[in-house]
């Protein structure tokens, strides 16, 4: 019986839909994400992945449905209907968002150390030495040399920027991480290194995450579970290995056979 479970889901998505005028962004999406779980969302370009992720992360307001998050104070609470201050508070404490384009998630005119330190300062850190130490530690964890701490991300390569964005997001130990195509736009060898790093962090920190990607290699490596989207709807969902090794839906079969891969 479900009430024997020690803790409930971290995120419970119920019948979410978002339309752009008459066009479907996403619709009829429901799922639960459990603490420590990584959910992958795959599908070709235009299938509604980003729309759904933005609805879940409070960046877009869904036209329908609920997005319940297990808040520290009140337990499960609908983030769509909570007040904006409350939602913004979640965004800079319990949630993290890694953008596909690192420049959207970084302050390009602020040093690497300042970028990592911002979330700490946002929640009240007021000791320069400690902020800097923490920033150095995190640069190390994402394999950026401590010597670069005072350089601006504009002087960084694409891969470094993305790793910096990840450090900036994880420094406050968020309970849920949203990622939109975190390896998109990077060279293949750079992608591999970033994936390795992400996998290490996910394991080490026991992260709960929702990762959007069109790259099946990414979900194969990172995701416990998978949702396959097409035309704004989830056409298949399940454990990653099961879905990838034994796809049931015709569209998933096409995806896996890499016919549709871009």
């Amino acid at each position: 019986m479900s009430n024997l479970q020690e803790s409930g889901p971290l995120l419970s998505v119920r019948d979410v839909a978002k339309f752009y005028g008459a066009r479907v962004g996403c619709r009829d999406v429901s799922f639960d994400l459990w603490p420590g779980e990584v959910m992958g969302i795959v599908g070709e370009s235009g299938s509604g992945k980003t729309t759904l992720l933005n609805c879940l992360a409070g960046q877009l307001t869904p036209d329908h449905g609920e997005v319940l998050f297990d808040t520290r104070t009140d337990g499960l609470k609908d983030t769509v209907r909570m007040s904006e201050p409350e939602r913004r508070m979640l965004r800079r404490t319990d949630w993290a968002f890694v953008h596909q384009h690192a420049h959207e998630g970084l302050r390009m005119n602020v040093s690497a150390g300042g970028n990592v330190g911002e979330r700490l300062m946002a929640v009240g850190a007021r000791n320069y030495g400690q902020i800097r130490e923490e920033a150095l530690d995190w640069l190390g964890r994402v394999e950026i040399s401590g010597e670069r701490i005072d350089d601006r991300p504009s002087a960084f390569s694409g891969g470094m920027r993305q790793r910096l964005q990840i450090a900036r997001n994880l420094v406050t130990g968020p309970r849920l991480v949203f990622m939109d195509e975190p390896t998109g736009g990077l060279d293949v060898s750079v992608q591999a290194r970033l994936l390795d790093l992400l996998r290490g962090l996910v394991r080490e920190m026991g992260l709960s995450a929702i990762i959007v990607t069109h790259d099946l290699a990414v979900v194969r490596l990172l995701a416990d579970r998978l949702m396959v989207m097409k035309g704004g709807e989830v056409v298949e969902a399940g454990l990653t290995d099961q879905v990838l090794d034994d796809p049931q839906h015709g569209y998933t079969q096409l995806l896996v056979s890499s016919v549709l891969q871009v």
Partner: peptide, 21 residues
Amino acid sequence: KMHALEEYGLMHVKLYEDIAR
């Protein structure tokens, strides 16, 4: 919005940058 919600971490980022540089 930042004023309305007292989100002033950014102000300290500026001071942090000062000290770092």
